[in-house]
Amino acid sequence: MRHGEAGWHSIDQQRQLTDAGRKAAGIVARQIARSPWRPVEIWASPLVRARQTAAVVSEILNCPVDEKIFLTPDDDPGKCLDALLDMSVDGPLMLVSHMPLVGSLSTLLVDGHRRGIPFMTSQAVLLDMPVIGPGCADLKSQFLP
């Protein structure tokens, strides 16, 4: 999931969600709550807007949030893939991050390359990945505000 809409009145690392961003994140979280793919854990970027988005989603889905330093906008999607390979989460996992990372990571997991697809704010996609690796995921659904 990409974080919700954030204001532009501060430096990038401190940008906070707007009211519209909170509302859109809640709409998407409620859609996910009605799906059979509820996450058991959320990994979130340490930047404010992603943490705030994860908090909204966590409250609705009733699952814990774990901050991950490798989920910031310009991080290498390969670092996230390495963490996914090492993870000990038993069940669906949700990531809350930023563009361009969410686009490049999703493309890496589905198509095996890093060119990246665009994500709207608060957009989430569901990837089914029986085996973790580049090109091993199937896009099952997407959730839009």
Rank of each mutant, 00 (worst) to 15 (best):
Q16M: 09
V102N: 10
R34F: 02
D86V: 07
D86H: 07
V48H: 06
D12A: 06
L93Q: 09
L85V: 06
A6W: 13
G78R: 11
D86P: 02
V96I: 14
L71R: 01
R15D: 14
A25E: 13
P92K: 05
D74M: 05
S35T: 00
S10D: 15
D66I: 09
G21N: 03
V40Y: 11
Q13G: 06
L17A: 08
M94H: 03
L71A: 11
P73A: 05
P64F: 08
N62E: 09
L84E: 10
S10F: 05
Q13R: 12
A25V: 14
S88T: 07
S104F: 09
G91Y: 06
E41Y: 10
L71H: 02
V48M: 05
Q16F: 02
R30I: 06
C80H: 02
A54V: 03
E67M: 05
V96G: 14
C80I: 11
S58I: 13
P73H: 03
A20K: 01
P36Y: 05
D76E: 03
I60E: 12
L61M: 09
P64G: 07
A54M: 10
V89G: 04
R15E: 15
F70D: 08
D12S: 11
C80P: 02
E41Q: 15
S58K: 02
P77F: 00
R15Y: 11
E59A: 15
S45E: 01
T72M: 14
L101V: 06
S45L: 01
T18K: 12
G7Y: 04
S97I: 01
I60T: 13
A29C: 11
T107E: 15
S106F: 01
S97M: 02
P100M: 09
D66H: 10
P39R: 04
V57K: 01
S104M: 14
T72I: 09
V28F: 02
S88M: 08
D86S: 12
A20Y: 00
R30F: 07
G103F: 01
D75N: 05
I69H: 09
L47H: 04
M99I: 05
Q14D: 14
A55M: 10
D12W: 05
P36C: 04
M94Y: 05
A20S: 11
Q52D: 03
R49W: 15
D19F: 03
S58G: 15
L61H: 04
G91K: 10
D12C: 01
V28L: 04
I60C: 13
A55C: 04
V56P: 11
G21A: 08
R34Y: 03
T107V: 03
A20M: 05
T53F: 00
T18D: 04
E41T: 09
P100A: 10
Q14C: 13
A29I: 10
L95W: 01
I27R: 13
R51K: 06
A33P: 12
C80L: 13
P64I: 03
S45D: 01
I69G: 07
L95K: 00
L84H: 01
L84I: 13
K68M: 12
M87G: 08
